[in-house]
Design a protein around this nucleic acid. Structure first.
Lengths: 227, 227
DNA sequence: TTTGCCCAACCTTAACAAAACCTTAAAAAA
DNA sequence: TTTTTTAAGGTTTTGTTAAGGTTGGGCAAA
Protein backbone atom coordinates (compact mmCIF):
# COMPACT_ATOMS: atom_id res chain seq x y z
CA UNK A 1 0.00 0.00 0.00
CA UNK A 2 1.50 3.29 -1.10
CA UNK A 3 0.61 6.61 0.44
CA UNK A 4 1.55 10.06 -0.78
CA UNK A 5 1.55 12.98 1.65
CA UNK A 6 1.41 16.41 0.03
CA UNK A 7 2.00 18.87 2.86
CA UNK A 8 4.30 21.87 3.11
CA UNK A 9 4.53 21.81 6.90
CA UNK A 10 7.46 19.48 7.37
CA UNK A 11 6.78 18.84 11.02
CA UNK A 12 3.21 17.80 10.37
CA UNK A 13 4.20 15.78 7.32
CA UNK A 14 6.75 13.90 9.34
CA UNK A 15 4.29 13.25 12.11
CA UNK A 16 1.74 11.88 9.65
CA UNK A 17 4.40 9.71 8.15
CA UNK A 18 5.13 8.28 11.55
CA UNK A 19 1.55 7.36 12.28
CA UNK A 20 0.99 5.81 8.88
CA UNK A 21 4.31 4.07 8.54
CA UNK A 22 3.06 0.77 9.85
CA UNK A 23 0.41 0.40 7.20
CA UNK A 24 1.82 2.24 4.24
CA UNK A 25 4.84 2.78 2.13
CA UNK A 26 5.00 6.56 2.47
CA UNK A 27 6.25 9.18 0.01
CA UNK A 28 6.29 12.87 0.80
CA UNK A 29 5.95 15.99 -1.30
CA UNK A 30 6.46 19.40 0.23
CA UNK A 31 4.72 21.62 -2.28
CA UNK A 32 1.93 21.45 -4.82
CA UNK A 33 4.03 21.00 -7.95
CA UNK A 34 6.04 18.20 -6.50
CA UNK A 35 2.89 16.57 -5.22
CA UNK A 36 1.20 16.78 -8.57
CA UNK A 37 4.23 15.36 -10.30
CA UNK A 38 4.40 12.38 -7.99
CA UNK A 39 0.67 11.78 -7.97
CA UNK A 40 0.64 11.72 -11.76
CA UNK A 41 2.73 8.59 -11.73
CA UNK A 42 -0.49 6.94 -10.63
CA UNK A 43 1.22 4.50 -8.35
CA UNK A 44 -0.37 5.49 -5.05
CA UNK A 45 -3.29 3.87 -3.33
CA UNK A 46 -4.31 6.99 -1.47
CA UNK A 47 -3.19 10.60 -1.19
CA UNK A 48 -3.29 13.00 1.76
CA UNK A 49 -3.51 16.55 0.48
CA UNK A 50 -3.03 19.84 2.26
CA UNK A 51 -4.84 22.88 0.90
CA UNK A 52 -2.80 25.88 1.85
CA UNK A 53 0.54 25.61 0.15
CA UNK A 54 2.67 28.19 -1.64
CA UNK A 55 2.57 28.49 -5.46
CA UNK A 56 0.08 25.74 -6.18
CA UNK A 57 -2.62 25.02 -3.65
CA UNK A 58 -4.34 21.73 -2.94
CA UNK A 59 -7.48 22.51 -4.89
CA UNK A 60 -5.42 23.17 -7.97
CA UNK A 61 -3.42 20.00 -7.52
CA UNK A 62 -6.54 17.90 -7.16
CA UNK A 63 -8.34 19.54 -10.04
CA UNK A 64 -5.39 18.98 -12.32
CA UNK A 65 -5.11 15.39 -11.20
CA UNK A 66 -8.74 14.57 -11.93
CA UNK A 67 -8.46 16.32 -15.24
CA UNK A 68 -5.73 13.89 -16.12
CA UNK A 69 -7.89 10.96 -15.18
CA UNK A 70 -5.93 10.02 -12.11
CA UNK A 71 -8.61 8.68 -9.80
CA UNK A 72 -6.53 7.88 -6.75
CA UNK A 73 -8.61 8.46 -3.59
CA UNK A 74 -7.73 11.79 -2.00
CA UNK A 75 -8.32 12.92 1.55
CA UNK A 76 -8.03 16.63 2.11
CA UNK A 77 -6.41 17.70 5.33
CA UNK A 78 -6.73 21.32 6.26
CA UNK A 79 -7.39 23.91 8.92
CA UNK A 80 -10.16 25.39 6.81
CA UNK A 81 -13.36 24.12 8.38
CA UNK A 82 -15.86 26.39 6.66
CA UNK A 83 -18.60 24.65 4.73
CA UNK A 84 -17.64 26.56 1.60
CA UNK A 85 -14.15 25.17 1.75
CA UNK A 86 -15.52 21.69 2.11
CA UNK A 87 -17.86 22.22 -0.79
CA UNK A 88 -14.97 23.34 -2.91
CA UNK A 89 -12.87 20.38 -1.84
CA UNK A 90 -15.49 17.81 -2.72
CA UNK A 91 -16.38 19.58 -5.92
CA UNK A 92 -12.89 19.30 -7.29
CA UNK A 93 -12.91 15.60 -6.53
CA UNK A 94 -11.94 14.84 -2.96
CA UNK A 95 -13.10 11.62 -1.35
CA UNK A 96 -12.86 12.76 2.23
CA UNK A 97 -12.14 15.91 4.15
CA UNK A 98 -10.57 16.08 7.58
CA UNK A 99 -10.16 19.26 9.59
CA UNK A 100 -7.06 20.08 11.61
CA UNK A 101 -6.50 19.49 14.41
CA UNK A 102 -7.50 15.85 14.20
CA UNK A 103 -6.90 12.61 16.02
CA UNK A 104 -4.21 10.52 14.42
CA UNK A 105 -6.43 7.51 14.87
CA UNK A 106 -9.19 9.10 12.88
CA UNK A 107 -6.91 9.84 9.98
CA UNK A 108 -5.73 6.27 10.05
CA UNK A 109 -9.26 4.95 10.16
CA UNK A 110 -10.36 7.08 7.27
CA UNK A 111 -7.36 6.07 5.23
CA UNK A 112 -8.09 2.44 5.87
CA UNK A 113 -11.77 2.80 5.04
CA UNK A 114 -10.81 4.39 1.77
CA UNK A 115 -8.24 1.82 0.78
CA UNK A 116 -10.42 -1.05 1.82
CA UNK A 117 -13.02 0.09 -0.62
CA UNK A 118 -10.82 0.90 -3.56
CA UNK A 119 -8.90 -2.32 -3.27
CA UNK A 120 -12.21 -4.08 -2.96
CA UNK A 121 -13.18 -7.10 -0.91
CA UNK A 122 -13.88 -6.77 2.76
CA UNK A 123 -12.27 -10.09 3.42
CA UNK A 124 -9.10 -8.57 4.59
CA UNK A 125 -5.81 -9.30 3.01
CA UNK A 126 -7.15 -11.46 0.26
CA UNK A 127 -7.14 -10.13 -3.24
CA UNK A 128 -8.91 -12.14 -5.89
CA UNK A 129 -9.14 -12.36 -9.62
CA UNK A 130 -11.51 -15.08 -10.74
CA UNK A 131 -10.31 -18.22 -8.92
CA UNK A 132 -6.88 -16.81 -8.31
CA UNK A 133 -6.33 -15.54 -4.79
CA UNK A 134 -3.48 -13.54 -3.34
CA UNK A 135 -2.90 -13.78 0.37
CA UNK A 136 -1.31 -10.43 0.97
CA UNK A 137 -0.32 -11.22 4.49
CA UNK A 138 2.12 -13.95 3.63
CA UNK A 139 2.61 -13.16 -0.04
CA UNK A 140 1.35 -16.45 -1.35
CA UNK A 141 -0.92 -17.07 -4.28
CA UNK A 142 -3.31 -19.89 -4.96
CA UNK A 143 -5.73 -21.11 -7.55
CA UNK A 144 -8.39 -23.28 -6.00
CA UNK A 145 -6.48 -25.58 -3.69
CA UNK A 146 -3.17 -25.34 -5.44
CA UNK A 147 -0.51 -22.97 -4.24
CA UNK A 148 1.43 -21.07 -6.86
CA UNK A 149 4.97 -20.17 -6.14
CA UNK A 150 5.69 -16.57 -7.02
CA UNK A 151 8.76 -14.70 -5.97
CA UNK A 152 8.66 -11.22 -4.50
CA UNK A 153 8.38 -8.94 -7.48
CA UNK A 154 6.27 -11.35 -9.47
CA UNK A 155 3.80 -11.27 -6.64
CA UNK A 156 3.92 -7.48 -6.53
CA UNK A 157 3.33 -7.30 -10.23
CA UNK A 158 0.33 -9.58 -10.07
CA UNK A 159 -1.06 -7.62 -7.14
CA UNK A 160 -0.69 -4.37 -9.02
CA UNK A 161 -2.32 -5.82 -12.10
CA UNK A 162 -5.26 -7.19 -10.15
CA UNK A 163 -5.77 -3.92 -8.35
CA UNK A 164 -6.01 -2.25 -11.73
CA UNK A 165 -7.73 -4.88 -13.78
CA UNK A 166 -9.16 -3.71 -17.05
CA UNK A 167 -6.96 -0.67 -17.18
CA UNK A 168 -3.78 -0.45 -19.14
CA UNK A 169 -0.69 0.11 -17.06
CA UNK A 170 2.36 1.43 -18.82
CA UNK A 171 5.71 -0.15 -18.24
CA UNK A 172 6.80 3.06 -16.61
CA UNK A 173 3.94 2.96 -14.14
CA UNK A 174 4.63 -0.64 -13.30
CA UNK A 175 8.28 0.08 -12.96
CA UNK A 176 7.78 3.12 -10.75
CA UNK A 177 5.35 1.27 -8.58
CA UNK A 178 7.36 -1.87 -8.03
CA UNK A 179 10.96 -0.86 -8.48
CA UNK A 180 10.60 2.69 -7.21
CA UNK A 181 11.41 6.00 -8.82
CA UNK A 182 15.08 6.19 -8.42
CA UNK A 183 15.90 2.64 -9.20
CA UNK A 184 18.57 2.57 -11.88
CA UNK A 185 17.54 -0.58 -13.66
CA UNK A 186 15.91 -0.24 -17.01
CA UNK A 187 12.20 -0.66 -17.60
CA UNK A 188 12.82 -3.73 -19.72
CA UNK A 189 12.86 -5.78 -16.55
CA UNK A 190 9.12 -5.35 -16.62
CA UNK A 191 9.01 -7.43 -19.78
CA UNK A 192 11.04 -10.13 -18.16
CA UNK A 193 8.75 -10.22 -15.17
CA UNK A 194 5.66 -10.23 -17.31
CA UNK A 195 7.11 -13.16 -19.15
CA UNK A 196 7.97 -15.05 -15.97
CA UNK A 197 4.60 -14.36 -14.46
CA UNK A 198 2.89 -15.67 -17.55
CA UNK A 199 4.99 -18.77 -17.44
CA UNK A 200 3.95 -19.42 -13.87
CA UNK A 201 0.29 -18.87 -14.63
CA UNK A 202 0.31 -20.86 -17.84
CA UNK A 203 -0.27 -24.13 -16.04
CA UNK A 204 -3.66 -22.87 -14.93
CA UNK A 205 -4.45 -21.08 -18.16
CA UNK A 206 -4.42 -17.76 -16.43
CA UNK A 207 -1.66 -16.35 -18.59
CA UNK A 208 -4.26 -15.52 -21.22
CA UNK A 209 -5.65 -12.73 -19.09
CA UNK A 210 -2.44 -10.75 -19.13
CA UNK A 211 -2.73 -8.80 -22.32
CA UNK A 212 -0.01 -6.69 -23.80
CA UNK A 213 -0.83 -3.49 -25.60
CA UNK A 214 1.94 -2.60 -27.96
CA UNK A 215 3.33 0.84 -27.35
CA UNK A 216 1.10 1.21 -24.31
CA UNK A 217 1.66 -1.40 -21.67
CA UNK A 218 -0.03 -4.33 -20.00
CA UNK A 219 -3.50 -5.04 -18.78
CA UNK A 220 -5.15 -7.76 -16.78
CA UNK A 221 -8.47 -8.38 -18.43
CA UNK A 222 -11.34 -10.46 -17.17
CA UNK A 223 -13.04 -10.46 -20.55
CA UNK A 224 -12.48 -13.75 -22.32
CA UNK A 225 -12.12 -13.72 -26.04
CA UNK A 226 -12.01 -10.03 -26.65
CA UNK A 227 -8.90 -8.08 -27.22
CA UNK B 1 -29.59 6.09 -7.07
CA UNK B 2 -31.16 4.53 -4.01
CA UNK B 3 -30.57 5.77 -0.50
CA UNK B 4 -31.64 4.15 2.74
CA UNK B 5 -31.95 6.24 5.89
CA UNK B 6 -31.89 4.30 9.15
CA UNK B 7 -32.77 6.82 11.84
CA UNK B 8 -35.26 6.63 14.70
CA UNK B 9 -35.71 10.39 15.03
CA UNK B 10 -38.54 10.93 12.59
CA UNK B 11 -38.05 14.66 12.38
CA UNK B 12 -34.40 14.33 11.50
CA UNK B 13 -35.09 11.46 9.11
CA UNK B 14 -37.66 13.53 7.30
CA UNK B 15 -35.33 16.48 7.11
CA UNK B 16 -32.57 14.33 5.64
CA UNK B 17 -35.02 12.91 3.16
CA UNK B 18 -35.87 16.39 2.05
CA UNK B 19 -32.28 17.42 1.42
CA UNK B 20 -31.44 14.24 -0.44
CA UNK B 21 -34.63 13.89 -2.42
CA UNK B 22 -33.29 15.63 -5.47
CA UNK B 23 -30.48 13.20 -5.97
CA UNK B 24 -31.76 9.95 -4.54
CA UNK B 25 -34.68 7.64 -4.40
CA UNK B 26 -35.08 7.57 -0.61
CA UNK B 27 -36.31 4.79 1.66
CA UNK B 28 -36.63 5.18 5.42
CA UNK B 29 -36.32 2.78 8.31
CA UNK B 30 -37.10 3.92 11.84
CA UNK B 31 -35.34 1.29 13.89
CA UNK B 32 -32.40 -1.08 13.61
CA UNK B 33 -34.29 -4.25 12.72
CA UNK B 34 -36.23 -2.64 9.98
CA UNK B 35 -33.08 -0.99 8.70
CA UNK B 36 -31.20 -4.26 8.65
CA UNK B 37 -34.03 -6.01 6.89
CA UNK B 38 -34.19 -3.39 4.16
CA UNK B 39 -30.44 -3.12 3.79
CA UNK B 40 -30.19 -6.86 3.32
CA UNK B 41 -32.13 -6.57 0.09
CA UNK B 42 -28.89 -5.15 -1.21
CA UNK B 43 -30.61 -2.72 -3.51
CA UNK B 44 -29.21 0.50 -2.11
CA UNK B 45 -26.28 2.50 -3.38
CA UNK B 46 -25.57 4.10 -0.04
CA UNK B 47 -26.90 3.96 3.52
CA UNK B 48 -27.13 6.63 6.21
CA UNK B 49 -27.03 4.99 9.61
CA UNK B 50 -27.79 6.39 13.05
CA UNK B 51 -26.07 4.83 16.03
CA UNK B 52 -28.33 5.34 19.02
CA UNK B 53 -31.54 3.51 18.35
CA UNK B 54 -33.71 1.34 20.61
CA UNK B 55 -33.41 -2.48 20.51
CA UNK B 56 -30.71 -2.76 17.89
CA UNK B 57 -28.14 -0.01 17.59
CA UNK B 58 -26.29 1.12 14.49
CA UNK B 59 -23.07 -0.75 15.25
CA UNK B 60 -24.99 -4.00 15.45
CA UNK B 61 -26.83 -3.31 12.23
CA UNK B 62 -23.63 -2.57 10.38
CA UNK B 63 -21.76 -5.51 11.82
CA UNK B 64 -24.53 -7.87 10.86
CA UNK B 65 -24.65 -6.39 7.39
CA UNK B 66 -20.96 -6.85 6.74
CA UNK B 67 -21.13 -10.34 8.13
CA UNK B 68 -23.66 -11.10 5.44
CA UNK B 69 -21.36 -9.69 2.83
CA UNK B 70 -23.48 -6.67 2.04
CA UNK B 71 -20.87 -4.11 1.09
CA UNK B 72 -23.08 -1.11 0.47
CA UNK B 73 -21.26 2.06 1.47
CA UNK B 74 -22.41 3.26 4.88
CA UNK B 75 -22.11 6.68 6.41
CA UNK B 76 -22.61 6.84 10.15
CA UNK B 77 -24.49 9.84 11.44
CA UNK B 78 -24.40 10.39 15.15
CA UNK B 79 -24.08 12.80 18.05
CA UNK B 80 -21.26 10.68 19.47
CA UNK B 81 -18.13 12.54 18.56
CA UNK B 82 -15.63 10.74 20.79
CA UNK B 83 -12.71 9.17 19.02
CA UNK B 84 -13.57 5.79 20.52
CA UNK B 85 -16.98 5.89 18.95
CA UNK B 86 -15.45 6.70 15.61
CA UNK B 87 -12.97 3.88 15.97
CA UNK B 88 -15.78 1.51 16.71
CA UNK B 89 -17.77 2.78 13.74
CA UNK B 90 -14.97 2.32 11.26
CA UNK B 91 -13.99 -1.01 12.77
CA UNK B 92 -17.38 -2.51 12.11
CA UNK B 93 -17.18 -1.38 8.52
CA UNK B 94 -18.33 2.21 8.07
CA UNK B 95 -17.08 4.21 5.12
CA UNK B 96 -17.61 7.63 6.62
CA UNK B 97 -18.62 9.16 9.90
CA UNK B 98 -20.40 12.46 10.31
CA UNK B 99 -21.08 14.09 13.67
CA UNK B 100 -24.34 15.87 14.51
CA UNK B 101 -25.01 18.66 14.16
CA UNK B 102 -23.83 18.90 10.60
CA UNK B 103 -24.38 21.01 7.52
CA UNK B 104 -26.87 19.50 5.13
CA UNK B 105 -24.53 20.37 2.29
CA UNK B 106 -21.74 18.40 3.84
CA UNK B 107 -23.87 15.30 4.14
CA UNK B 108 -24.86 15.69 0.53
CA UNK B 109 -21.27 16.13 -0.57
CA UNK B 110 -20.11 13.08 1.31
CA UNK B 111 -22.93 10.99 -0.10
CA UNK B 112 -22.04 12.10 -3.59
CA UNK B 113 -18.35 11.44 -3.12
CA UNK B 114 -19.18 7.93 -2.00
CA UNK B 115 -21.55 7.15 -4.81
CA UNK B 116 -19.28 8.69 -7.38
CA UNK B 117 -16.61 6.22 -6.45
CA UNK B 118 -18.69 3.06 -6.27
CA UNK B 119 -20.70 3.75 -9.41
CA UNK B 120 -18.62 6.20 -11.33
CA UNK B 121 -15.79 3.99 -12.39
CA UNK B 122 -17.99 2.18 -14.83
CA UNK B 123 -19.26 5.13 -16.74
CA UNK B 124 -15.95 6.86 -17.06
CA UNK B 125 -13.87 7.13 -20.13
CA UNK B 126 -16.27 5.91 -22.72
CA UNK B 127 -16.53 7.81 -25.94
CA UNK B 128 -19.47 6.98 -28.15
CA UNK B 129 -20.65 7.50 -31.68
CA UNK B 130 -24.02 5.93 -32.29
CA UNK B 131 -23.63 2.32 -31.13
CA UNK B 132 -19.89 2.42 -31.41
CA UNK B 133 -18.11 2.81 -28.10
CA UNK B 134 -14.48 3.49 -27.34
CA UNK B 135 -13.20 2.46 -23.95
CA UNK B 136 -10.39 4.87 -23.47
CA UNK B 137 -9.18 3.14 -20.36
CA UNK B 138 -8.19 0.01 -22.19
CA UNK B 139 -8.17 1.20 -25.78
CA UNK B 140 -10.78 -1.21 -26.96
CA UNK B 141 -13.67 -0.46 -29.24
CA UNK B 142 -17.00 -2.20 -29.43
CA UNK B 143 -20.23 -2.11 -31.35
CA UNK B 144 -23.01 -3.56 -29.27
CA UNK B 145 -21.56 -6.73 -27.83
CA UNK B 146 -18.88 -7.24 -30.41
CA UNK B 147 -15.35 -6.10 -29.82
CA UNK B 148 -13.49 -4.51 -32.70
CA UNK B 149 -9.78 -4.94 -32.90
CA UNK B 150 -8.05 -1.68 -33.68
CA UNK B 151 -4.36 -1.10 -33.41
CA UNK B 152 -2.87 1.93 -31.73
CA UNK B 153 -3.01 4.63 -34.35
CA UNK B 154 -6.28 3.41 -35.81
CA UNK B 155 -7.80 3.79 -32.41
CA UNK B 156 -6.29 7.24 -32.04
CA UNK B 157 -7.66 8.26 -35.40
CA UNK B 158 -11.15 7.07 -34.56
CA UNK B 159 -10.99 8.81 -31.22
CA UNK B 160 -9.97 12.04 -32.89
CA UNK B 161 -12.73 11.76 -35.45
CA UNK B 162 -15.38 11.09 -32.84
CA UNK B 163 -14.18 13.98 -30.72
CA UNK B 164 -14.67 16.19 -33.75
CA UNK B 165 -17.65 14.65 -35.40
CA UNK B 166 -19.40 16.76 -37.98
CA UNK B 167 -16.36 18.92 -38.55
CA UNK B 168 -13.91 18.47 -41.34
CA UNK B 169 -10.39 17.63 -40.28
CA UNK B 170 -7.60 18.21 -42.74
CA UNK B 171 -4.99 15.56 -43.28
CA UNK B 172 -2.45 17.92 -41.80
CA UNK B 173 -4.48 18.31 -38.63
CA UNK B 174 -4.88 14.58 -38.30
CA UNK B 175 -1.25 14.01 -39.01
CA UNK B 176 -0.03 16.59 -36.52
CA UNK B 177 -2.34 15.25 -33.89
CA UNK B 178 -1.52 11.57 -34.21
CA UNK B 179 1.95 11.44 -35.65
CA UNK B 180 3.24 14.62 -34.08
CA UNK B 181 4.63 17.75 -35.66
CA UNK B 182 8.16 16.75 -36.24
CA UNK B 183 7.49 13.29 -37.51
CA UNK B 184 9.22 12.84 -40.85
CA UNK B 185 6.71 10.59 -42.51
CA UNK B 186 4.48 12.02 -45.19
CA UNK B 187 0.86 12.89 -44.66
CA UNK B 188 -0.21 10.20 -47.06
CA UNK B 189 -0.11 7.75 -44.18
CA UNK B 190 -3.34 9.35 -43.12
CA UNK B 191 -4.97 7.98 -46.22
CA UNK B 192 -3.69 4.54 -45.47
CA UNK B 193 -5.02 4.68 -41.96
CA UNK B 194 -8.36 6.04 -43.07
CA UNK B 195 -8.53 3.12 -45.44
CA UNK B 196 -7.62 0.57 -42.79
CA UNK B 197 -10.08 2.04 -40.36
CA UNK B 198 -12.86 1.89 -42.93
CA UNK B 199 -12.02 -1.70 -43.66
CA UNK B 200 -12.34 -2.58 -40.00
CA UNK B 201 -15.64 -0.77 -39.65
CA UNK B 202 -17.08 -2.08 -42.89
CA UNK B 203 -18.31 -5.25 -41.25
CA UNK B 204 -20.68 -3.19 -39.13
CA UNK B 205 -21.54 -0.72 -41.87
CA UNK B 206 -19.94 2.07 -39.95
CA UNK B 207 -17.48 2.88 -42.71
CA UNK B 208 -20.17 4.95 -44.38
CA UNK B 209 -19.93 7.62 -41.72
CA UNK B 210 -16.34 8.45 -42.54
CA UNK B 211 -16.71 10.91 -45.34
CA UNK B 212 -13.97 12.17 -47.59
CA UNK B 213 -13.95 15.79 -48.72
CA UNK B 214 -11.75 16.24 -51.71
CA UNK B 215 -9.09 18.82 -51.20
CA UNK B 216 -10.24 19.36 -47.62
CA UNK B 217 -9.99 16.29 -45.47
CA UNK B 218 -12.15 13.85 -43.58
CA UNK B 219 -15.23 14.07 -41.43
CA UNK B 220 -17.18 11.69 -39.26
CA UNK B 221 -20.80 12.46 -39.89
CA UNK B 222 -23.99 11.63 -37.99
CA UNK B 223 -26.28 12.15 -40.92
CA UNK B 224 -26.88 9.15 -43.13
CA UNK B 225 -27.13 9.88 -46.85
CA UNK B 226 -26.65 13.60 -46.82
CA UNK B 227 -23.31 15.26 -46.93
C1' DT C 1 -26.62 22.37 -71.45
C1' DT C 2 -24.54 18.19 -72.27
C1' DT C 3 -20.77 14.96 -73.35
C1' DG C 4 -16.37 13.16 -73.05
C1' DC C 5 -11.66 13.56 -71.71
C1' DC C 6 -7.94 14.63 -68.53
C1' DC C 7 -5.75 15.08 -64.34
C1' DA C 8 -5.29 15.53 -59.60
C1' DA C 9 -6.75 13.66 -55.41
C1' DC C 10 -7.77 9.75 -53.17
C1' DC C 11 -8.15 4.52 -52.23
C1' DT C 12 -6.26 0.08 -51.64
C1' DT C 13 -2.99 -3.36 -51.44
C1' DA C 14 1.17 -5.51 -50.55
C1' DA C 15 5.93 -5.61 -49.53
C1' DC C 16 9.50 -4.02 -46.77
C1' DA C 17 11.44 -1.76 -42.59
C1' DA C 18 11.50 -0.89 -37.99
C1' DA C 19 9.94 -0.96 -33.52
C1' DA C 20 8.28 -3.36 -29.63
C1' DC C 21 8.02 -7.28 -27.30
C1' DC C 22 9.15 -12.28 -25.75
C1' DT C 23 12.07 -15.69 -24.10
C1' DT C 24 16.03 -17.67 -22.49
C1' DA C 25 20.18 -17.95 -20.21
C1' DA C 26 23.96 -16.32 -17.90
C1' DA C 27 25.89 -12.99 -14.71
C1' DA C 28 25.31 -10.41 -10.53
C1' DA C 29 23.40 -9.54 -6.18
C1' DA C 30 21.08 -10.71 -1.97
C1' DT D 1 20.78 -20.94 -2.54
C1' DT D 2 17.27 -17.91 -4.52
C1' DT D 3 16.17 -13.81 -6.59
C1' DT D 4 17.16 -9.97 -9.59
C1' DT D 5 19.24 -7.83 -13.53
C1' DT D 6 21.37 -7.65 -17.99
C1' DA D 7 22.09 -9.07 -22.52
C1' DA D 8 21.14 -11.22 -26.89
C1' DG D 9 18.60 -13.31 -30.48
C1' DG D 10 14.19 -14.46 -32.15
C1' DT D 11 9.31 -13.35 -33.01
C1' DT D 12 5.44 -10.63 -33.93
C1' DT D 13 3.08 -6.52 -34.75
C1' DT D 14 2.83 -2.12 -36.51
C1' DG D 15 4.45 1.73 -39.38
C1' DT D 16 5.81 3.30 -43.87
C1' DT D 17 6.37 3.52 -48.65
C1' DA D 18 5.36 2.83 -53.28
C1' DA D 19 2.64 1.38 -57.10
C1' DG D 20 -1.46 0.78 -59.56
C1' DG D 21 -6.45 1.38 -59.48
C1' DT D 22 -10.48 4.41 -58.80
C1' DT D 23 -13.12 8.52 -58.46
C1' DG D 24 -14.90 12.94 -59.47
C1' DG D 25 -14.47 17.83 -60.79
C1' DG D 26 -13.01 21.09 -64.42
C1' DC D 27 -13.07 22.33 -68.96
C1' DA D 28 -13.52 22.43 -73.82
C1' DA D 29 -16.10 21.01 -77.79
C1' DA D 30 -20.48 19.70 -79.51
Amino acid sequence: MNLLIIEDDKVLSESIKETTNDLFQVEQAFDGEEGLYLAEQNIFDVIILDIMMPHMNGYEVLEELRKKNITTPVIILTAKDGIDDKIKGFKVGADDYLVKPFHREELLLRLQAMVRRSVGSFKENILSFKDLHLHLKNKTASIGEEVIKLNGKQFDLLEYLINNKNTILTKEQIFDRIWGFESDTSTTVVEVYASNLRKNLKKYDYDQYIKTFRGLGYMLSDGEGNV
